[in-house]
Design a binder for these strands. Structure first.
Lengths: 218, 218
DNA sequence: ATTATATGTTACAAAATTGTAATATTTAGA
DNA sequence: TCTAAATATTACAATTTTGTAACATATAAT
């Protein structure tokens, strides 16, 4: 979605993008921008900072209260203040006019790639295996292993803290929220179960015990 | 982690970052960069494109084969080729020397914010609720609802395709992989269960049926 | 308005997940 | 080397999740 008031630029952008296999839509009604955005639900927004009726940065700020739709800010000024503000308001990237078309395309590609993995939300990697968080499935070559909910939480937590020692308390809180947690052995058992599954795909020593400190995913 | 050969700049950067409550570590052994990175497992890397012994872009490319550690490319040239290449090789951001310290800090903050939500991997939002994919927990104000595995897959899928119609086949494939799928009613039942849970937190009509086409999360 | 088809609902039994307890093993330090 | 504390293992029972079937309702097209 292109949000820009100079028609020439709109058409240029639109042509460039359509030529590169992106579908484009040009926002007409600036006054109603937020509603239009939600109605269309675009994959990415090119947002000119200087559009009539509303303030581009304010629009971005309001958008970010409800949505993570990727936004690339476009501007004619190249003051660093704009850049800084856009980023802190949640823009995914920033480009100044006049822009090099190839750079713009690359930046769009980069932002989409970044946010797409964010959308899928689900894929983490560890060495030569992939972990789909949503499904709780680990894939290595053609072998698949299904984790249960607790195992998913533990493995995701360890993956997100790879090569760092993770205390048992951290894991306990991650699974049970300390409040309703009772038995100290429950974590040990669940770690054990996860280890057994990892062993099936050759990661026998992936989770290392650091006695008195916790566990570490190597 | 700072990967940069000009010691003056290293020290400047280090001071700037430490003053802003970041822990820094300066990479010394460029020849062994990749191993060092894995050993330290930094939260973010500032990578100068022109370092001795190795090529910055090649290092980034190799790093990206195994890790998503956020990388901001730093360079003295401001040729667009560098910028374009860095981005396509998987840099999270790019900054040219001489840089404005405040801009650098903002960009670091922005990248960390972006990648942190990526790390947590787990948080999706929908209107005024938050969904923790890993735990399968929906939070609205102080109410918590726990989803089961199938419900998590459905809700995550719908969230990732908000305002778009999602066919029953897509959902079936998402849950069962078509191969081992048997009963057509199973999806309907699971949708029903998810709807009942959403109803508990006031999202009675969130999942809308589009007869003959599928479902849509409004 | 009627009908065939798509989708919704409910209850139940099979299967998977989980915490527990009892016992075994490992480890750091005396 | 010995011991106490931390961590591992195993089997079992309670709980939760799941698919199924039988029946109910809604919808688009005639």
């Amino acid at each position: 979605m292109i949000i820009e008031d100079e028609k020439l630029i709109c058409n240029e952008l639109s042509k460039l993008l359509e030529n590169n296999n992106y579908e484009t839509i040009i926002l007409k009604d600036f006054k109603n921008a937020l509603n239009e955005i939600f109605k269309v639900s675009p994959d990415l927004i090119l947002l000119d900072i200087n559009i009539p009726f509303i303030n581009g940065e304010a629009l971005l700020q309001n958008l970010r209260k409800e949505s993570n739709i990727p936004v690339i800010m476009v501007t004619s000024s190249n003051s660093e203040t704009d850049e800084a503000l856009s980023i802190s308001y949640g823009a995914d990237d920033y480009i100044t006019k006049p822009y090099n078309p190839n750079i713009l395309l690359l930046r769009i590609g980069a932002v989409l790639k970044r946010t797409k993995t964010n959308y899928n939300a689900n894929k983490l990697t560890y060495k030569d295996l992939k972990f789909d968080i949503t499904k709780g499935i680990i894939k290595k070559n053609n072998i698949e292993i299904t984790l249960t909910k607790n195992e998913i939480i533990i493995f995701a937590y360890l993956l997100n803290h790879q090569n760092k020692i993770v205390s048992r308390d951290e894991l306990i809180t991650a699974i049970w929220d300390t409040a309703d947690y009772i038995n100290d052995n429950a974590l040990t058992v669940n770690i054990n179960r996860l280890r057994n599954k990892l062993k099936e795909i050759g990661y026998e020593n992936a989770i290392d015990t650091r006695k008195g400190m916790g566990y570490i995913l190597l």
